[in-house]
Amino acid sequence: MSIEVSNIANLPTKHGKFLIKAYKDGCQEHLAIMSTNFKELENPYVRVHSECLTGDTLGSMKCDCQNQLDLALDFISKEGGLIIYHRQEGRNIGLVNKINAYALQDKGRNTIEANLELGFDEDERDYSIVKFILDDLGVKKMRLITNNPKKLDYISSIGIEITQRIPAITKVNEYNKDYLDTKKSCMGHLL
């Protein structure tokens, strides 16, 4: 597969100043959001953030995605590192199916049951672009910001040393409590 890569540009945000680079594989476009000192870091903080339009952009309280993204942007801005914005909406089932899964959740299904009922696995994400981005940026070791054991396993499997896991714990609310409980009890998230 051919991957198109952009130049690096400046990205000033409310969280701080960053550098940004885009990667396109097929129809999906992903981002590397780097602290301005990223190239100087031997052991950067890294978050692989999975896209969540309803959370990241609209502020949905059904998940903790926007809170985790804000936490990572603030942290990386201060401490230095990288956020890979992994554009595989709804664990890679797409926006239409994610909203269909929301409708099933409104009827009492949990996030896994909803995906399965729609004919998907509990998690359809493919992390191969993450390897490409990390290789492109020369990352050999990192301090990974995650609660997801699959991300820990994947990063280790591609030969990158994880020197530390930083939890991405955010506030629980009445709308995301069941979602987070399911991620912890059924998907092994480290919450």
Rank of each mutant, 00 (worst) to 15 (best):
E51C: 03
C52Q: 05
L53T: 00
L53P: 13
L53A: 07
T57Q: 15
L58H: 14
S60E: 07
S60V: 04
M61H: 14
K62N: 14
K62G: 11
C63D: 14
Q66D: 14
Q66E: 09
N67T: 12
N67W: 08
L69C: 01
D70I: 12
D70R: 10
L71E: 10
L73G: 00
F75G: 06
S77K: 01
E79H: 06
E79K: 15
G81E: 10
G81N: 07
G81M: 09
G81I: 09
I83T: 03
H86T: 01
Q88K: 00
G90T: 02
I93Q: 07
G94N: 03
L95K: 09
L95F: 14
N97G: 00
N97W: 03
I99Q: 03
I99V: 14
I99H: 05
N100Q: 15
Y102A: 04
A103L: 13
A103I: 11
Q105Y: 04
D106H: 02
R109V: 12
I112P: 12
I112R: 10
A114Q: 14
A114C: 04
A114N: 13
L116D: 03
E117Q: 13
E117T: 14
L118I: 13
L118F: 10
D121Q: 03
D121Y: 00
D121M: 01
D123N: 11
E124I: 02
E124P: 01
E124G: 00
D126S: 08
S128A: 09
S128F: 11
V130W: 05
F132L: 01
I133F: 06
L134H: 09
L134D: 12
L134N: 03
L134E: 04
L134F: 08
D135F: 06
D135N: 13
G138K: 05
R143V: 05
L144S: 02
L144P: 10
T146H: 08
N147Y: 14
N148E: 12
N148F: 00
P149D: 06
L152N: 10
